[in-house]
Write a protein that binds this DNA or RNA. Structure first.
Length: 373
DNA sequence: GCCTCCCGCCATAAC
DNA sequence: GTTATGGCGGGAGGC
């Protein structure tokens, strides 16, 4: 498919440097160009010509940036610049919408809304209202479900909605796709994750590292740690050298014919469990100490921190010695909400969830779960 | 030899 | 019809 002629000729005549053409570097340059005061609108043609690349590459970058709230699509060819300050809101909305959808109802609609948080909408063609009309064709749906933006959001959710510290791209692909996909599908998904990881790395939202034991390449979520609104991204070459690319990958898709709806399904299952546990938790609090309810989930969401598995939706209730009736039956809670995962990756993720919940709750309660119960 | 990921074809959506 | 968008996977750079 790729035209060997161009590449061959380039490498034959001059030093063709792959690194100089990388998506991550391009993203850094893009951010250097636009991450400054006074920038409000970005034209794709303008960006492409100023960066000296074809439009196709700009689409890759803006799709990722849009999905994390840095850009918002205004019109054909036009994006508005939100900046890094848009990221927290975008991530909050990811979680917020998910919680909303859990309360409101149908999974299918949930996923639609969830897939299109108001981060500027994936595209005008797939904004929330149009999606909710459920009039989109299955082809449109199919295409959207495979979009780079949606995949970016799901990849980010792996970090912010669980306590996984490191994840390799093949692990991510496996979780997002579920088991039972052939090597080709996995490979394609991994390719896309490489693209996404490169962009997110150049923004310093994630960093490449290695699993301590296996030494396999993996990514760690950095989020907003120590970053000011303009304090990251546009890293420059030195910093850029440190960027990392993902680990193994194994993900692919059938050729334009299959709906891999399992992506959202798997992640959402985890998130729903979190939300359900939150509600269960709240109801327990209600039973015991109604005063704690003053802190509603909206406020909690506002207090969101970008660390792994920050239980954003859970009231910051500190255990009181007087709350003797409080039930800390985590095992039964877990069994109540334990999803029926069919692959090991999801089971592992679930286990991570449970441990993180226990650990977090012990922390706020001031004593280990075992002692409390 | 395998991991990484650039590149551009071409299907689809938007106009 | 034309143009904009972006999924996709071949295959080459890089280690």
């Amino acid at each position: 498919m790729a035209s060997p002629t161009i590449r061959e000729s380039a490498s034959r005549h001059h030093a063709y440097s792959r690194k100089q053409k990388s998506l991550g570097l391009l993203c850094s340059n893009f951010l250097s160009l636009y991450n400054r005061d006074g920038v409000e609108s970005i034209g794709l043609d303008d960006a492409a010509s100023r960066l000296g690349v074809e439009r196709r590459r700009i689409y890759d970058i803006v799709n990722v940036l849009e999905s994390v709230g840095v850009l918002a699509r205004k019109a054909k060819n036009q994006y508005s610049w939100k900046g890094f300050g848009g990221i927290p809101k975008a991530l909050e909305e990811l979680k917020d919408l998910h919680f909303f959808s859990l309360v409101q109802g149908s999974d299918d609609e949930d996923d639609e809304r969830f897939s299109n948080p108001n981060t500027g909408s994936q595209n005008d063609k797939t904004n929330a209202s149009s999606v909710l009309k459920s009039s989109a064709s299955s082809k449109t749906e199919n295409r959207r479900e495979k979009s780079l933006g949606l995949l970016t959001q799901n990849f980010v959710k792996l970090f912010i909605c669980s306590n996984v510290d490191l994840i390799s791209l093949d692990e991510a692909a496996r979780i997002l796709l579920g088991d039972g996909h052939n090597a080709s599908i996995m490979r394609t998904k991994v390719r896309r994750l490489y693209d996404i990881a490169n962009v997110l790395s150049s923004m310093n939202l994630i960093e490449k590292t290695h699993h301590t034991e296996s030494r396999k390449p993996a990514f760690r979520w950095l989020g907003m740690k120590g970053k000011s609104e303009k304090g990251f991204g546009a890293l420059g070459l030195n910093e850029y050298k440190k960027r990392v690319f993902g680990a193994e990958i194994t993900n692919t898709t059938f050729k334009r014919n299959r709906v891999d709806s399992s992506i959202d399904g798997n992640i959402d299952q985890c998130m729903k469990m979190q939300s359900q546990m939150k509600m269960k938790h709240e109801s327990m609090e209600y039973e015991v100490d109604g005063s704690n309810l003053e802190q509603d989930s909206t406020e909690i969401v506002r207090n969101y921190q970008f660390g792994p598995f920050a239980p954003v939706s859970v009231p910051k209730v500190v255990a009181s010695e007087n709350n003797v009736k409080r039930v800390y039956d985590w095992e039964s809670l877990a069994s109540t909400f334990r999803p029926q995962y069919h692959n090991q990756a999801l089971r592992d993720l679930f286990a991570h969830y449970m441990e993180a919940w226990k650990s977090w709750y012990s922390e706020v309660a001031g004593k280990p779960i075992q002692q409390i119960s």
